[in-house]
Amino acid sequence: MAGDEDMKEGGLDWAAAYRRLDRLAAATDAAATTDPEQEREVMDERARRLARTVSARATPGHLLELVHFHAGEQDYALETRFVREVLRSSEQRVTLPGAPEQLRGVVLLHGEVLAVVELSPLFGRPAPTHHGPVLVVGQGRAELGLRADRVEEVLSVSRDALLPPPPALGAQERTLVAGLTREGIIVLEGEALLRDGRLFFDLSEERVS
């Protein structure tokens, strides 16, 4: 967990965050070098995840294949075609004290820095303080990490069976929702989610003042 080194007068110290990510990457490389068996296990698991993801890809249509997850006292679902993998461990996450409520930190994923964000503030709920698994989402590449309390299962739901978004949601929030299942799961619109500027942050070091 990041400490005061990630803060500087006037806002976030992005340089410190990047230094911590570099140390994590170096530690990961060293562990893999000194433990070939563990490295093989990691690579095998990545291969299994990729195989599951590719086989689960579904084209938009009448039947939706959804990843069901729980975050901030709410159940959500997102089409499998937007979910690239699930990170079960939060050990490689660097938190950023002073960051906006929906930015939960960053992770180093396959050599690239990825923002981990929280859905709860977008739907008028307070952001939980605890960590959990991260859904890596994107179209064609990893674009965003969604923090979850837990990932439940893969569901198949008919698009016609979805209920309309609840009227209590504001106009901006309604654009993110394809509908509700009869169990009360919010089915997210993947394209709209990946276009929402509230969930994307400039992670380049040029932001450091």
Rank of each mutant, 00 (worst) to 15 (best):
A2V: 03
D4W: 08
E5P: 00
K8W: 09
G11T: 03
L12F: 05
A16T: 02
Y18E: 05
R23F: 13
A25L: 14
A26Y: 07
T28I: 09
A31P: 03
A32N: 14
A32S: 13
P36L: 01
Q38L: 14
Q38Y: 11
Q38E: 12
E39D: 12
E39M: 12
E39S: 15
D44W: 11
D44N: 12
E45M: 10
R46E: 08
R48Q: 07
R48K: 09
R49N: 14
L50C: 10
L50Y: 10
L50V: 12
T53D: 01
A56W: 00
R57W: 07
R57G: 04
T59H: 11
T59V: 10
L63S: 10
F69V: 04
F69R: 01
F69K: 03
A71H: 10
G72M: 05
Q74P: 01
D75Y: 06
Y76T: 10
L78Q: 00
T80D: 09
F82E: 02
V83M: 09
V86A: 08
L87A: 11
R88S: 13
S90L: 07
Q92D: 15
Q92N: 13
L96Y: 04
G98K: 08
A99D: 01
V107R: 05
V107Y: 05
L108I: 10
G111V: 09
V113T: 06
V117I: 04
S120A: 13
S120E: 04
S120D: 01
L122K: 05
F123V: 12
G124W: 07
R125Q: 10
P126F: 08
A127L: 00
H130D: 09
H130R: 13
V134Q: 00
V134E: 00
L135T: 01
V136R: 14
V136D: 03
V137D: 01
V137K: 00
G140I: 08
A142Q: 05
L146K: 04
L146N: 03
A148L: 07
E153Y: 06
E153G: 06
E153K: 09
V154M: 10
V154I: 12
L155I: 01
S158A: 12
D160Q: 13
A161K: 02
P164T: 13
P166G: 05
A168E: 13
Q172C: 06
E173G: 04
E173W: 03
E173S: 12
R174K: 15
R174A: 15
R174C: 09
L176D: 01
V177P: 04
T181I: 06
R182G: 08
E183L: 07
I186V: 15
V187W: 04
V187A: 05
E189M: 12
G190W: 01
E191M: 08
A192E: 09
L193A: 05
R195N: 13
D196F: 10
G197W: 02
R198E: 01
L199M: 01
L199H: 02
F200E: 03
F200G: 02
D202P: 03
D202G: 07
D202R: 01
L203A: 02
L203S: 00
S204E: 02
E205G: 15
E205N: 07
E205T: 14
E206F: 06
V208H: 14
